[in-house]
């Protein structure tokens, strides 16, 4: 494993810890898209089916279990703190994303089997799953700082996978085309957010330094 991959995974892990911390300390689901979080449950469950028949490493197994369990826990937390009276900004028609990802998975896969199609589906769905969350962010106007840190760390994870893939291509001659293309798509989906994050958060922090 190379440094980009490790940093990417750590960033992914941290993003989920930030989210759980934010929701449990404020006891509020406000500003967080339940649709995005439910999509991640589907992403992890459909991608990590290989837990049952393929052993890669202890690290790999533990991380997969963490992502499945934590994503389910987040949905559970959001349901607990969701106030029905609150006006919802979580309005993005998420079924388009599911449908699109499924069509892409049928076209682009390494093997026309249920496991491989679900694996591909999970990559395409992950690449666009943040969109309902970005819509909530846009409609709410002002977001909690923790929410923006969460989205940033989550976006950074797939962005860091890109140098990881370049590194692996040159050292191992390995290139997972589906992962690479969906990963680039995912980073493009985030690009606008990254730019705003940089302008708002990074520059403000610098500004406050004595």
């Amino acid at each position: 494993m190379n440094i980009f991959r490790i940093l990417g995974d750590i960033s992914h892990l941290i993003s989920i810890l930030i989210l759980i911390h934010a929701v449990s300390t404020t006891k509020s689901a406000q500003g967080i898209s339940l649709k995005t979080q439910a999509a991640y449950v589907v992403v992890f469950v459909s991608r990590y089916l290989d837990l049952f028949f393929r052993y890669v490493s202890l690290y790999n197994t533990l991380m997969k279990l963490f992502f499945i369990v934590s994503s389910i826990y987040v949905v559970f937390l959001l349901n607990r703190y969701k106030k029905n009276s609150e006006k919802t900004n979580d309005i993005f028609p998420v079924w388009y994303l599911f449908g699109g990802a499924f069509v892409f998975a049928l076209i682009f896969n390494y093997e026309f089997s249920i496991v491989e199609i679900l694996w591909s589906f999970s990559l395409w769905l992950e690449s666009v799953a943040i969109i309902p969350q970005l819509v909530v962010l846009q409609r709410t106007g002002e977001a909690q700082l923790l929410t923006t840190h969460y989205i940033f760390a989550l976006g950074l994870y797939r962005a860091l996978y890109i140098p990881n893939w370049i590194y692996r291509y040159y050292t191992e001659g390995r290139m997972d085309k589906i992962a690479v293309i969906s990963g680039i798509l995912q980073t493009i989906v985030y690009s606008d957010f990254f730019y705003i994050y940089y302008k708002k958060v990074v520059k403000n922090l610098k500004f406050k330094l004595p």
Partner: peptide, 10 residues
């Protein structure tokens, strides 16, 4: 090893 067998990333 086919590409499908090589899923070793998260």
């Amino acid at each position: 090893e086919s590409e499908a067998d090589a899923h070793d990333e998260l």
